[in-house]
């Protein structure tokens, strides 16, 4: 168990976070703060730098400049496993799952790090139930439909019991019912854990969001309440177009 941290220290803080690939600046001096237990949505057109930002937060990319702090601890440029151990879990845009393992094993591997076999088993079973995968625990993940694979990945992230969960397009490729269930699940997760969710589906955003951060061309364009963001003319211009109306 982690010690309680005073509210003054944000859960996550990025200062001037920058990612350059050769001459291209994918993420440009982004300042971003997330409080404990906060639920934040990240939107922006394709190529705005959202997924790159996630990769910087999880150590998959080392920032070219700037700083990333988790509860005040500087984790800039740390290895992915190091950041994961500090309590960050991510569902990536392209599902990263173990195709050749069963649903159960996928979640069990996630639940089992530094825990007793019994508690790993308990967490696995609870998580599978929570994400409603109990009916297919023995199936190979490689054979599942895209929506189900997404949930397997969400289940592995939950089984890891992180304090901060990053979800990169969690509703992509899901049916309408699955999207509703995912939104419900996110609100449920948020009772105990902080989340950042990248999504394109505006209806989905409205279902879960309070504060929305809009990325555009590697920078933060706006950060505000969801209703004001949807009404913002600059946001409509770069991203929403007519679909939000």
């Amino acid at each position: 168990m982690k010690l309680p941290v005073p509210d003054a220290t944000p859960l996550l803080e990025a200062k001037g976070a920058t990612m350059r690939f050769g001459g291209v600046v994918a993420v440009n001096e982004v300042d971003f703060t997330l409080r404990e237990m906060e639920l934040r949505c990240l939107i922006g057109p394709n190529g705005a730098g959202k997924s790159t930002f996630f990769k910087m937060l999880t150590g998959q990319l080392k920032p070219s400049a700037g700083q990333i702090r988790l509860r005040g601890e500087n984790v800039t440029g740390a290895e992915p496993h190091h950041i994961a151990r500090r309590g960050v879990g991510i569902k990536t845009q392209v599902p990263n799952v173990f195709n050749g393992l069963s649903v159960y094993e996928n979640v069990f591997v996630a639940a089992g790090r530094r825990k007793s076999r019994a508690s790993a088993k308990r967490i696995t079973e609870q998580t599978l139930e929570r994400v409603r995968l109990t009916g297919i625990t023995g199936r190979m993940v490689g054979q599942l439909a895209h929506g189900q694979r997404q949930w397997v990945e969400i289940a592995t992230v939950l089984a890891q019991e992180p304090d901060l969960i990053l979800l990169d397009e969690p509703a992509a490729g899901m049916t309408h019912d699955e999207v509703l269930r995912t939104a419900e699940l996110i609100r449920e997760i948020n009772r105990a854990q902080a989340l950042i969710v990248v999504e394109h589906d505006m209806q989905f955003i409205r279902m879960i969001a309070t504060t929305v951060t809009v990325f555009n061309q590697g920078r933060i364009l706006v950060e505000d309440h969801v209703d004001r963001v949807m009404a913002n003319q600059a946001v409509r211009d770069v991203y929403l177009g007519k679909q939000a109306a």
Binding site: A84, N96, F98, G100, L101, V109
Partner: peptide, 14 residues
């Protein structure tokens, strides 16, 4: 075996 299947995921799990 999980590393064989997906090394990135294993690292992201800590």
């Amino acid at each position: 075996v999980a590393i064989r299947e997906n090394e990135t995921r294993v690292q992201l799990l800590g």
